[in-house]
Design a protein around this nucleic acid. Structure first.
Lengths: 228, 228
DNA sequence: TATTAAATAGTAGTAATACTATCATAATAA
DNA sequence: TTATTATGATAGTATTACTACTATTTAATA
């Protein structure tokens, strides 16, 4: 029941679009569970195949390798955030409110209800937090970047940059601030969960209010805006 | 010729301290070259053994696995930065100058001359930039954190925190700022080299002046200090 | 409804990885 | 000189990351 959103993702991510078939959706669904459970390095296509009662060969018909499956998942998440950011900022015309909404959308993306049934957004969010840097810290970055595989984050960043420039056109580091905030949204949650001495925030269950406050504080301070 | 510094690192990092033997030093020296060359995922102990004319078994006598070798390298780097920070801030008593010096030390750590002959600091820096998040984004974080394997970064962060508190005791996010700045020192360089749209800075060869300016700007703005 | 095409399953095999174990030999220290 | 320690040499195992090929099921179309 319910309508499943399909995101149009870069075709370089897969051989066959997993969003279009039953097996494809099962691959996505179970890979999210397995990666979260085992960690990316111990996750294998063999284990995934066993989990969904299929075969390695069948999975390879969708994804060239597990690295690209990870890039796919991260891209999916970021496209989703882009989409949220778009719809949540409708009818907001004050640029400061727009930035606040953007930060809320980024931090709370996994709490939205209208994700497809085969995607456990909470788990996917957790994967983004712990594994996403591995998607681009590789020898293939330049090649994959050229193919457009990292466009979703880059677009996300540019939306923030546009807001920063609206708010304070003289701020000298809009792109740095965008990427820093996006990283912060992941790393600070990770620290809160594993390396507490590296953060001041706490995250309980799915409550990201402290994260949001810190992100807004940082953004506004750097842009030279006094918060209310 | 020259005296080689030996850093006292956590014994949980290795079976046998590689800094103490000829083979150990060769392992360090060549692993830095190989990891930088192949990327961490394609780097193997077999290739390393071949490179230094030794055997896998001998390398395993030093490191339990390549993950711990990576953690060792990152720890070494961070201990080095801690050491630099210490000696460079001697005789500086103004806390703002101390912070500036700290940022300089962090960004320029790989340019220092007095590193051991078997450690190519430029390459190691590059490894830190591209591979360091992999050292702690794993299922073993909590266990390894408990064993103290990540102490070097945490100590580094606390030194920054102490400075922030000296400069502005009311700043609400000192730990977040510390970890954010430390990440920035790596990620922004990575972006400058691979994903230019995510940064405003440029890094040419080993010139990190734009990075340092951005880090200082960020730190001072957030701490509420006007720069000169 | 029969025919065809597409999707999936099943099986097998290969080169490489991530180790472990054992024994021999070389270097060093007591 | 004798132990001890470090390294080398060789071999072996389970698992990974694939590729290739064939058989069967499911869905689309005529």
């Amino acid at each position: 029941m319910g309508v499943d959103v399909q995101l149009g993702l870069n075709k370089g991510l897969f051989h066959r679009d997993p969003q279009e078939t039953t097996l494809g959706k099962k691959i996505i669904e179970s890979s999210i569970i397995l990666i979260e459970d085992l960690g990316f390095e111990d996750f294998t296509f063999r284990k995934l195949a066993k989990e969904i009662g299929s075969t390695e060969a069948s999975i390879y018909r969708y994804f060239e390798n597990k690295h690209l499956l990870l890039v796919f998942l991260i891209s999916w998440y970021n496209e989703w955030v882009n989409y949220l950011l778009e719809i949540n900022s409708r009818n907001i015309f004050d640029s400061i409110s727009k930035l606040e909404t953007a930060i809320d959308s980024i931090a709370d993306a996994s709490l939205d209800l209208y994700t497809p049934s085969y995607i456990n957004m909470q788990l996917l969010h957790h994967i983004v937090i712990t594994e996403s840097t591995k998607a681009y810290h590789t020898k293939r970055v330049d090649k994959e970047n050229q193919e457009g595989l990292f466009l979703p984050v880059k677009i996300l960043a540019e939306k923030l940059v546009a807001l920063f420039e609206e708010i304070n056109p003289d701020y000298p580091y809009p792109r740095l601030l965008a990427s820093t905030l996006l990283e912060m949204a992941n790393s600070q949650v990770f620290y809160a969960q594993h390396l507490k001495r590296l953060t001041d925030i706490e995250v309980e269950k799915e409550d990201y209010s402290q994260l949001k406050r810190a992100m807004k504080h940082t953004a506004f301070k750097l842009l030279g805006i006094e918060e209310m």
